[in-house]
Simulated scan of single mutants.
Amino acid sequence: MKHILVYGMTDNFGGMEAYIYNVYQHLDRTQIQFDFVCDFPQMTLSDYYLENGCKIHFIPPKSQSLLKSLWSMWKVIKENNYDVIYFNIMNAGYVLNMIPAFLLGKKIVAHSHNADTDKKFLHYRLRGFLNFIAKMKLACTKAAADFMFGKIENCILIKNGIDLDKYQYSFGMYKSIRNRLGWNLDSKFVLYVARMDNQKNPFFALNIAKKINQLDPSVHFIYVGDGPMRNEVFNYIAENNVNNIHLLGIRHDVNELMIASDALILPSLFEGLGIVAIEAQAAALPVFLSDTIPLDAKILDTTEFLPIEKSENVDLWASKVVNTVNNNMPRKSDKVILAKAGYDIKAVAKQLQSILLN
């Protein structure tokens, strides 16, 4: 069995962490095992990974001391004799973390999960260095590949696969989950699953929630997530009188929340893909995405892209959402379409495992 060192996990369960978790559950662990190196004080789902035989190595963050961080990474790789390091990255600045692996002559696999960044200066300064160091390049979409590596030909697309069975919608499940959650069967629920940080455009989303409440006070807004902007989000809700909003924090039953909801919004400033959009479509949920998200995120006709550049766009989002949830359109999950589009986690895990082992 080969141990692969994985970098990219944080202390917050977001899209990248969900992707790694989904893949890990479907690896052939007679052949491959993930270990992790993390530069956060804690790592999400650490208990689960430890129970399944993974090692977790904690190193200092680069912000604390670049030299200490890189030296710690060097020791982890050297002392445990890892041959392959799988870097899940959001911008080219992550290439600094790859230097110890490069100097030790290890196989570096760089997987792009983003199609833009707030750190543009750093990203474009280091992109050439990233292309030089990382011989194996992966991306979740063509947009994420072009952003991270430039327009190159030798980048392999790895879809953000999910367990399609977990998202199968039925009216019976819809009623059962709502009953357990205490959600009224006659009420409408709009879902927003996003880390609380600038990329996810939380204040725009909260303005949509406020406008929805003005248009139809019976519609509930469900906010799932946590993150560095938690205090700002809570203050914004209080100061702007955003009503009928439910803050659920980090949840590990998002598949059930999607089955039980009536629409999902994701007005992000940018995404590599937006895995929650794929999950929502697997649950046959109407989805509204910002037009800055890659077109790959649309699998079904019930998904629509909307603008976010102007404040008045909030009214458009709110009216579209309210009209949709009150239309009571029939829902039906279609595993075949999602699988043909490449989002079956079993096929994705098999593809990635082959890349990491060869």
Rank of each mutant, 00 (worst) to 15 (best):
D11H: 03
N12A: 00
Y19L: 08
V23G: 03
R29E: 01
F34E: 02
Y48P: 00
L50I: 14
K55P: 03
I56L: 01
I56D: 09
Q64F: 15
L66T: 15
L66P: 05
L67Q: 11
S69Q: 11
V84Q: 10
I85M: 11
M90N: 08
G93N: 14
I99S: 12
L103S: 03
V109N: 07
H113I: 13
D118S: 13
D118F: 15
H123W: 15
R125G: 13
N131G: 15
K135Y: 11
E153A: 12
L157H: 08
I162S: 05
N179Q: 13
W183A: 00
N184M: 07
Q199F: 03
Q199A: 00
K200W: 06
N201L: 10
I208L: 12
K210F: 04
L215R: 11
I222C: 04
V224D: 05
V224F: 02
V224Y: 14
G227C: 13
R230H: 15
R230C: 13
F234L: 13
I237N: 06
I245T: 02
L247V: 15
E256G: 03
A260Y: 00
S261M: 01
L264T: 07
L266P: 07
L269Q: 12
I278L: 05
L285E: 01
P286L: 11
V287G: 13
L289I: 06
P294L: 05
L306D: 09
S311G: 11
S311C: 09
V314A: 01
L316N: 04
W317L: 02
N328L: 12
M329D: 04
K340V: 09
L356P: 02
